[in-house]
Design a binder for these strands. Sequence first.
DNA 1: GTCTATACTAAGATAGAC
DNA 2: GTCTATCTTAGTATAGAC
Lengths: 184, 184
Amino acid sequence: MNGALAAFAEHGFNGASMRDIAKRADTSLSNVYNYFPSKEDLLVAVLKDTNGELLRRTNRTVAAAKPNPTDRLRAAVRAYVGFVVDAQPASIVALSELRYLGGERRKAVVAARDETEALFLRLVEEGVESGEFTTTRPHDATRAVLLLCATVANWFRPDGELSREAVAELQADFALALVGARNN
Amino acid sequence: MNGALAAFAEHGFNGASMRDIAKRADTSLSNVYNYFPSKEDLLVAVLKDTNGELLRRTNRTVAAAKPNPTDRLRAAVRAYVGFVVDAQPASIVALSELRYLGGERRKAVVAARDETEALFLRLVEEGVESGEFTTTRPHDATRAVLLLCATVANWFRPDGELSREAVAELQADFALALVGARNN
DNA sequence: GTCTATACTAAGATAGAC
DNA sequence: GTCTATCTTAGTATAGAC
């Protein structure tokens, strides 16, 4: 499945060929079909795996953070951005290739993605209730926060000006600005 | 070229076929090749056109706005989001398909895109100089603002809860939050 | 479980007539 | 400028042996 991930990240779902995927996995074309009945099923597996890992990581980090909304949202953004930086190809695929899935396959992946969105939304709403966040549009602010986290995959360069940690801090600051945090 | 735009928006660069593009343009396959030597050249034409139109529109709107940085940035974001909503398929293509271009073709499109980025960066820096914006990272804030504008293409629905104008206002508020505007 | 071989379809691009 | 017809390559997927 790692070979597929790399191929999808490099060439996109439609640009990646099953032959290339097989080669990257050091196996034969028809062996790939032994494990995955179609190319779409391969993409589903990749996307589910990525979304699951992101959710687990974010959940764990938030649970370990201080209980106030500001610190919790900060922790969540740090976790998300940390994941994106650590698993950049997977994050690129998750961000850009979902659109090529339709029907039931799409639904399954969207459900997984929505769990993470729900987690972030809860954090934002907690902050609004406690008065730490002043946004009047928690849903829209949450979407903006998630987009900023996810799109790091499209521009981050490991050898760039910003370190892993610096990017996470930067995006956390942006997130708090978006929800209208009073003290950050 | 409109047929190509629709096909790229619907299926992505690699998923769209020249035959489908020809059909949408109500002409023959080989006639498409009469106007564009290759599929990549078609994509370049589409992307240049989109970026050019976006830049023109943003420039015009900013020039007509009040001279203070806050109003100017607001106007720029409104113009960008307005364009994205009006030309949603083109905006989707501009956002997602640039990655399939390499070499000289890519450079030409990136240069066009960078002009708009430079315009926004100038607005942000003006605000920082005048003291209206408090961000310490104008480049990163500008990137975040542009991303929020561009990604509207991926979720906006004409029949959704938010009207064209409401989305533009919303994103303008977010943009001002991102640059740390004092009074918005 | 893994392979080689192959069926079948569709892709990008071109030739050459009108 | 526009078409039909075609070349060539590569794609997804399967059959069937080991």
